[in-house]
Amino acid sequence: MGRVRSIEGRWRYIVFQIMSDKELEYEDVARDLWSVLLKLFGEVGVSFMNLKVIDYDKRSGFGILRCTHKTVDIVHAGVSMISEIRGTPILTDIKKVTGSIKKARETVEKLKIQVDR
């Protein structure tokens, strides 16, 4: 039996990094990310993304976002537009886009090792 495709279509997992002087909490990152995307694309636009902040590691700044494959570009643009979280200036960088959560987590682990070196 073939794989059942979800009603939203294919997912994409965006591995991102937030660079800042302070450690940021998952809740703050998720809230400000949603806020920026809502301001930029509106409620209808964001609804097409089926966005979810899956992981965020406050120590390394690496995180994983999930969205539909058709909205990867605009989510990337939206993430790039975030300039501060809770008043802390930040710099965001998209590291990789994958088709599976497993691959995204592997990428994060590899990147963390590179940062620790």
Binding site: M19, S80, I90, L91, D93
Partner: peptide
């Protein structure tokens, strides 16, 4: 530095 954006961004 925080105003920099990567080429991809």
């Amino acid at each position: 530095e925080y105003e920099l954006r990567s080429p991809g961004s």
